[in-house]
Amino acid sequence: MGAYELSLLTLIGINVLLALSLNLITGFCGQISLGHAAFYGVGAYTAAMLTKAGIGFAPALVAGAAGAALLGLIVGIASLRVRADFLAITTMGVGFLFLGVVRQQEWLGGELGISQISESGLGETGFLLLVLGLAAGVFAISLYIKRSWMGFAFDSIADDEDTARTVGIDVARYKLVAFALGTAIAGVAGGLYAHYARIIVPDAFGFTVSISILAMVVVGGIGSTVGVLIAAVLLTLMPELFRFINDYKLLLYGGLLLLTMRFSPAGLAGLARLGWTAGRKAERRPA
């Protein structure tokens, strides 16, 4: 495998992690977040600062996850107070706030960010395997959660919070769990990204990134683990495979968001389900 393929696969793995982590919050638990890149950024900055200070790669990753989860919990607490549209705006606000603060911090490199981040020490192939392993792990955990009691609780909260509360589900606790879990994974993705790119700038965690992650979740089908995985891979690959798209990457993401919401709000997963039922009906029809 060439250096380019290695690098591309690593990027795909990181994006899959990001998309699946947002899917836990927005897809499973129904809490819309427009600021997911902030948690990604907290993980990246924390891990980068720590390895630069001489701490090992693994503890730095964990610390990045913890840092992101801490901020995630705070936003989770906010989600207990504000709902739906208000929550969307609050999370977006958190994203801008993160960016606005980081940009002005000398010790975080300001606009220029952090460069010359140390290597993970795993080699390129080892690093790729770590990223893919983590992505596969999160994929498996997502599938497991969906079928577990917690998954049902998430579902009910996404469907109708008040009814969920009426039937005795501890809505607050499950929301916090969803936020902590999702943002911790985003933090890991951030730590990985910092040691993959080895340079981070504030803009790598801006609003457009939040929207790109959201696009993966939405295009795949909100809440569908397999759909989100496929969409994350496709949306990362498309600008790379078709160079001419790269210039219009944002247009592609924006257009996909627009068209998906307008014509198939359940995303690819919804289309697949539609195709599946149509196929079944055609089979049953007498020849």
Partner: peptide, 20 residues
């Protein structure tokens, strides 16, 4: 549809307009 559908569609449209 639920409110987030229009919100996300609107964000998509806005990005398309800017790129346009």
């Amino acid at each position: 549809r639920p409110p987030f559908v229009a919100l996300i569609a609107s964000i998509g449209l806005f990005i398309c307009m800017e790129e346009g």
